[in-house]
Write a protein that binds this DNA or RNA. Structure first.
Lengths: 166, 166
DNA sequence: CGCTTGCTTGGAGCGCACTCCAAGGTCATA
DNA sequence: TATGACCTTGGAGTGCGCTCCAAGCAAGCG
């Protein structure tokens, strides 16, 4: 079942420069902190709640992360960016641990997430349009306001509009 | 300062069908709940923390929201979608209350938000790429797994890859 | 009139995702 | 071998954004 293949999975992202080759891939928690930007607290917490597999330990019980663990943390990071709740990520982690018969369920979870991400992008683009409209409005209004201050116009009507717009 | 102009601000979004014309725009909290999807609790809380202007009251002290209040809630909803912290939205609301001399600061806040939104969209598109890769991988792997179950192939190497990928 | 429904308030409580603490064991370097 | 940085654990605490509660007022209806 388990192999020690030296090649990275075809599904993996582009390689990271700081990684050691397979076989010597044993990182302390502080190294993982440096790679991921997560805190050590968070890494331990992820493990406690089942979002990580049980991490290898040194002979004295200290955590030693593998390249595969870093791959998993990359994925978790991406899913976190989508706003997926941690509980859902834990669910996905459980499916992975349960083995091959959960392919279908994993597929559906990813598809649902994909749809969520697309919807989120659309929302953000919508928001962007509103923002752009307001920004150009303020650019104009600000210019008018500066003119007002310099006495070049005597117009309060234009600036009043902004209070209405917020 | 305050006008009762009957036209909507040029900066406003397309009109909403449920709105009453200016002058008769007086909505109860439960109407606003129906329009916005927010809870009455949240609407009152927004007011308490200064994210809303002080809302008009009926002679018995009940809230009466105006079209302008609804416009503001629309904007708040958009900003909320960007992930902007409530505290920052409160800051923006304060700037609006403070008057015309805060144009510049409002402009910068919106610009910063705009950049955040663009970055967020880029992140999500990056995540989408990862998701798409995994989804097509699972689509393939799932098909192979079904074939395995039906005895059409005798391959465990292909499905093993998935455990590695997660 | 009583009943229901809707609204008011200040303040307390909740769920999430961390974040930190205390007490102690381990490791690298001088 | 001693010093100090780093690691371990279970459990408690924090900040955010709501969410709810209790007690009470007001309006409409049979």
């Amino acid at each position: 079942m388990e192999t020690t293949s030296t090649r990275t999975d075809s599904c993996a992202a582009p390689p990271h420069p700081h990684r050691r080759p397979e076989g010597q891939d044993s990182y302390t928690i502080s190294e993982v902190v440096a790679f991921t930007g997560l805190t050590a607290h968070t890494l331990r917490w992820y493990e406690r709640i089942g979002l990580m597999p049980h991490i290898d330990r040194s002979h004295t019980g200290q955590r030693r992360y593998s390249n595969r663990d870093l791959d998993w943390l990359d994925l978790v990071g991406k899913l976190r960016l989508t706003g997926m709740p941690v509980a859902d990520m834990v669910r996905y982690a459980e499916l992975v641990r349960e083995g091959d018969h959960t392919f279908g369920e994993r597929f559906e979870l990813l598809e649902t997430t994909r749809r969520d991400v697309l919807a989120r992008i659309a929302e953000l683009q919508d928001t962007l349009a509103v923002l752009d409209r307001k920004i150009s409005f303020y650019a104009d209004a600000g210019r008018l306001y500066e003119q007002d201050k310099m006495g070049k116009t005597a117009n309060t009507g234009n600036t009043e509009k902004v209070e209405k717009a917020g």
